[in-house]
Amino acid sequence: MSLFGRLLRRGDLHSLAAPYALDALEPAERVRFERHLDDCDRCAAEVRALSEDAVRLAWSTAAPAPAALRDRVLAAVRTTPQDPAPGRAFRLPPHVWGVQPPQARSRAPRPRPLLVPFATATAAAALVVASLFAVQANRTQGELDTARDRAREIAHVLAAPDARATSGRDDRGRGIGAIASASEGKVVVTLSGYGDPAGDRVHQLWLMRPGAQPRSLGLFDGDTPLLASGLDRTATSLAVTVEPDGGSARPTSPPVVQLALESVGFGE
């Protein structure tokens, strides 16, 4: 090939960086481009940056995985051998992991079709998860560490085998979503559409039980999910009230929204 031809081909290959980052190449082109990346540092750097952008598009789609998936994956892990570490350093950028053809499809039983109740539950779960990942942005490292610790605790509740979700809306379309694990005695709650109350006031979450005073489960910080623990199975519902800054020992105003917990394993 002439020098001109080679340069042309290079330029042409280089223009594939964005389609590559978006996984928009055909298989043969993908292989050719990955080979090109091997000896083009500039392209590798560009692909890396573009791929980070593409991953941002992925974060916004997070949704809770079905509980049955967890059981299947963890069971499979117990019997699946691991591949050895690669003998030489990979020269490809970090995100290029798919250069090998995918392994033969596992023989795991076909998942059962999802039932509608699950899908409905997922709606509430999605509210919680989406705001969970939103907390990662624009924080200092210390704040990030705290947020991550909390995110981990929340993820733990979401991944509990008996985690179930419920949600409700008030007559103005504002919503409350909750994911609860009765076995862990924990619930993750989010508000959407309520914003911050006017003045020095806060949204406070209460646990309601028959024949008992409401118990405070904590104060909301905007749309950030609130994790409450120590719930026993007699809990019947959650309520949110607007309280003076710092919260109150007892509710001082009627609830702005309430949510029954029977469908998520409580209220015995």
Partner: peptide
């Protein structure tokens, strides 16, 4: 249903191929 199947493959692949991950690179 199909998403669950592919997600399962991906998550298992994490287990199998974890050794390929190089933290210096991203």
């Amino acid at each position: 249903a199909q998403s669950e199947e592919v997600a399962q493959e991906v998550l298992l692949e994490l287990w199998r191929s974890a050794a390929r991950f190089d933290p210096r690179r991203g």
